[in-house]
Amino acid sequence: MAEAMKQTVASMLKGIERYNPDNLPTLERYVEIQSRENAYDLEANLAVLKLYQFNPQFFNIDITCQILLKALTNFPHTDFILCKCLLNERQLAEEPINQIMYLGDILEQCDFQIFWKRVHSMPELTQRITGFLDSIRKFVCHVVGITYQRIDRVHLAELLGDVDDVTLKHWVKKYGWKEEGALVFISNQDENIKTKNINEKIDFDNVGAIMASCR
């Protein structure tokens, strides 16, 4: 369904057509489909927020929440910031947008323990977004993947939201990590993260011109 709509929607985003409020119902339906089918189309969602920005009378808080939650699922990309910039102070303060803003803020700070606690305390906020929790786990794995060479197994389980052993094994396998007793081996970081030395290289060609001019 989402795939099928992608083309239709793309034609609605071309040129000046992007600002046509008549497209709003279709675009809003597309947001709902994305939530349901775990699909994602940032450009279409930004166009919805843009139409709200130009036509405040059409502002739909429910759709806006879905767009923001979908943006959270696309961390580490900065889609969430892009969405935030198209809203205004008053809208951000509205319930439950302010809750989502808080979630975004702690996720940006990588305080995953608090994030999970908060999400579990209000399941109704995120449960409409299919695959929401796993998308966040993907982001956790991204951060772990760029930070660690080896990580404590218990700590990893905590970061993923206090997952049980089976789930932990699933994520470890998915990312090709290896369990080594109490630790999980992520990857050989010292191959990528090395001290760089930048030295000036001057070869003859570089100085040829100036030498020629100084006769």
Partner: peptide
């Protein structure tokens, strides 16, 4: 400046820029 963590040890990689004379 970049780093990675190996269990409980931080390994740091810095960029050192030599003086430029050119």
């Amino acid at each position: 400046l970049d780093f990675y963590i190996d269990n409980d040890m931080i390994h740091i990689a810095d960029t050192k820029v030599a003086h430029r004379y050119g």
